[in-house]
Structure formats: structure tokens, C-alpha cells
Nucleic acid binder design. Sequence first.
DNA 1: TATTGTTATACTCTATAACTATA
DNA 2: TATAGTTATAGAGTATAACAATA
Lengths: 172, 172
Amino acid sequence: MSAATRDHAGPRRPGRDDACGGALSSDLGWALGVVFRSYAKAANAAFAELPGGPRGYQVLAAAARGAPGSQLEVARHLGIDRTVMTYLLDDLESAGLIERRPDPADRRARRIVATAQGRESLDGLDRRLRDAERHVLNGLGTEADRSAFRDLLRQLATHVSAVDPGSGVCDA
Amino acid sequence: MSAATRDHAGPRRPGRDDACGGALSSDLGWALGVVFRSYAKAANAAFAELPGGPRGYQVLAAAARGAPGSQLEVARHLGIDRTVMTYLLDDLESAGLIERRPDPADRRARRIVATAQGRESLDGLDRRLRDAERHVLNGLGTEADRSAFRDLLRQLATHVSAVDPGSGVCDA
DNA sequence: TATTGTTATACTCTATAACTATA
DNA sequence: TATAGTTATAGAGTATAACAATA
């Protein structure tokens, strides 16, 4: 039986960590913050040498798998401001990892494509990311729980992203 | 049957949102970012008039329920830098919501306590937070899924917080 | 000497507003 | 007129280092 089904049926056990989490309704904000920061720290370490860090990786990965849409659409999907996207692409391009190609259908827009070197670099970066993710998700004991968490989180993100595509404007 | 148990057993369906998420292993980083930003946006709106915004609320809530430990320990638990904590407490104190009391056992340390006004304000703030959380978690269709997500996330955060209590240093 | 809390400084991000070119 | 992309500027947020008081 997974912790997901084991725990949420019963009453909430007041533990040491409930003491100063925050909300009465739940510690959702605290937990999200802790997990997000932990993931960000691991991702920063994994992509320390890549221009743009974790966001550089996200853009490179999107380019390598043939992201649909313009540079602006990719930015919106990743929650990156379009002005930040410009600097990010400048760095990735001068590192020889991606290229900006004019969209034949709309000469205002640019399409981001990964270079051969970019695709090659991505292999190692993917391995680093998998290690980082495994490290963070180790807090869940069973593979079933880890898988359930991934699915629920992805389901939530997909819904949020569909309802409010431009919600990447506000980080606190 | 909940989405948690329904989805993660079967193979991964490549959908529209897989196109530029990021990792090959999963879109964990992308999903965490989207959900975190969405939550941050809702929390910022909910606590727009409170000094310190969402973090001000977390500190106030910790004080109101009698957070154990010094001002520094609360800061560490919440992932707040100690220098930022000083400004935050200054604002909350001058708003009449909290007080700093010297710890009789260690005259270097201060204990944070909520004033009557602070505890009173907290009621309305809690209500606002519950609404914000409900809004974000609406992306999960069933109450069982929402509850499972909360539990898994809390379990993860508790583990991370225990392993690496000072991981609040690095936000990207 | 180490730690809590505070203050001051420098720096890194980010948001905003222009501007160019296309549509 | 509206949009994609770029550039420049100002502001918010953050990290770093120093300091005073206490352990």
C-alpha cells in the first residue's frame, strides 16, 4: 500500500514539522516552497556550467525535441519573460548549442533549433538531471509513491498551464 | 478510481504538453515550476496588503501558533535568509502584528509572538489562503487526488527539510 | 571563538518601457 | 493597429560582509 493511499484517509498526525509550517488548512505553501527550493538547488548544481542554468537546459531540451511554435511561445510555456528569453538565447547561441532560424511563414518570428553540439551536450545533461530528480524524490519511500507524485504534479501543471498560460510572470 | 492510480500504471501518453517541457525522464522540473509559480501568484494576490506578502503570512502564522525556537530557527525552517528576516519582522512589528521578545534562556536570541491584532488578522488571512489553495488544486479532479497530492508533497518536504534544513539559500 | 541579530553595500535578477521589423 | 523580437533603464530582491551583544 502506498503512502498516498495510506495517509490521506486517516486523521492528520501533528508532528514536529507542523509546528511552524504556516496554514491551518495545510502546509501546502511551505511544502511547495521546500520542495521547489530543493529541486532548484539540485538543478542549479547539475547545470552550473550551462549558460542560463536550469532554464538554459529547458530551452535547449525544447529546441532539441523540436519544440513547436515561435521563440515567444516556448518562453511562455516555460514561464520565461520574453526579454529574458533574448539574453538566454544569446548565451546559448554563442555557446554553439542552439540557432535562431527565421520562420518562413512569419518573418517576425524565430524558431529555435538545437545544433549538433547542442544535441550532443543534452545527453550528459539529461543524465545529470535524472540524478538530481532521483535525489529529490528519494524522500518518497516507494516507487509507487514517486510515480503517483509525478503524475499528480504533471496533471496539475497541465491544467494550470491550459487555464492560465501566462502565469509565469510572478515569482516570489 | 483516482488519477493517481489510474495514470501511473499505464504507459506515458505523449500529449500536446510534452512537446517542450524539458527532461526526457519526465517533466518534473517544468511541472514544479508551473505549479509553484501558480501558487506564488495566488498567494501574492491573497496577501497583497500584508507586509512581507506570503512570507509575512508564514511568519505571522508561525508566531501565532507558538513557533518553537528563535527567530533564526523560524527563518531557517521557512527558507528565509536571516538578514531578510530582520526586515520582514521590522515591517510586521511596525504594523502591530508581532512582537520580538528576548529569550530569557539566551539573551542573544529573540522569540517571535503574535499580538492580539496579529492573531485576529490571521483569521481572515487563513480564509484567503484556503481559497487560493483550492483554486490551485482545482486542477486535480477528485478530492482523493487532491488529498493524495497534499500528503505526498508534505511527506517529500518533511524528508527534504530533515535531511537538508538549510536548503532555503538557493532560489532560481 | 562561535552564534544571534542587525546594518550597510554590492550585485543579480526582473519588470517596464521604448524601439525595429514585420503582419 | 497589433505582434515578435530586441535593447536600455530602473527597481526589487538577494547575497555578502561587517558589526555589536552574548554565549
